[in-house]
Amino acid sequence: MNTLVIYTHPNHESLSYAFLQKVLQGSHENAKITEVQVLDLYEEQFDPVLVFNKNKRRRDMHKEPELAKYREQLLWADKIVFVYPIWWGRPPAMLLGYIDQMFASNFAYRDTGGLLPEGLLKGKTAVCVSTMKGPALYPLYWLNNAHKTLMRKALLQYVGIKNVKFFEFGSMEKKNGHQGEKLEKIYRYFKTVAQ
């Protein structure tokens, strides 16, 4: 199983970075995972800004040469892991900019003329590991589960990825936020996950 980890946080001393390290530690100890690649969007200096004009059209985004290596990563991966904080009830703008460009028509999905498109990334699985300052149930009760709806339904299922697992950790800025237990949970999951 090839695993692509997309990490989105500007600080390598953050709790998000500690979660990334646990994803990697567990993955490297899992015999089912053959190879792991990490895409650190900030370190990569990924440009999240969309540009469309008479020379650069949205319908051609799936052919942009500067995005070719990122398309290859997504095609290569059997499992796509997103590690990021939840800011203002949603992933960071950097990650959303990546999604805007990479999950493009004629690469991640194809319009069929019907209600829903054909997802072109079928057979892959995804895991979202996210942290937030507020309590764990805040997105569910206050935001109508907007984060999970965005990632699962509006993005991943739309492009054919049906198997999506969430680890949404709240109260992460509290001293008694059980950070160690949650880091261990991520390590154990990636050490044993079979698909």
Rank of each mutant, 00 (worst) to 15 (best):
residue 2 N to H: 13
residue 4 L to G: 04
residue 8 T to E: 10
residue 16 S to V: 05
residue 18 A to Y: 03
residue 20 L to N: 06
residue 21 Q to A: 07
residue 21 Q to T: 03
residue 26 G to W: 02
residue 27 S to E: 01
residue 30 N to E: 11
residue 34 T to R: 13
residue 38 V to F: 01
residue 43 E to I: 00
residue 44 E to A: 11
residue 45 Q to P: 02
residue 45 Q to T: 14
residue 46 F to Q: 07
residue 46 F to A: 07
residue 49 V to E: 09
residue 50 L to N: 12
residue 52 F to L: 08
residue 66 E to L: 04
residue 66 E to T: 15
residue 68 A to T: 14
residue 68 A to M: 04
residue 71 R to W: 15
residue 71 R to P: 03
residue 74 L to S: 03
residue 75 L to F: 02
residue 76 W to C: 09
residue 77 A to K: 08
residue 78 D to Y: 10
residue 78 D to H: 14
residue 82 F to Y: 15
residue 85 P to A: 07
residue 93 A to R: 11
residue 96 L to I: 14
residue 101 Q to C: 09
residue 101 Q to L: 13
residue 103 F to N: 02
residue 108 A to Y: 03
residue 113 G to D: 05
residue 113 G to T: 02
residue 113 G to H: 09
residue 115 L to A: 14
residue 116 L to C: 06
residue 116 L to N: 10
residue 117 P to F: 15
residue 117 P to C: 10
residue 126 A to F: 06
residue 127 V to D: 12
residue 127 V to Y: 05
residue 130 S to M: 10
residue 130 S to K: 01
residue 138 Y to H: 14
residue 138 Y to G: 03
residue 144 N to K: 04
residue 153 K to R: 08
residue 156 L to C: 02
residue 165 K to V: 11
residue 171 S to K: 13
residue 173 E to F: 06
residue 177 G to C: 08
residue 177 G to F: 07
residue 179 Q to A: 14
residue 188 R to A: 12
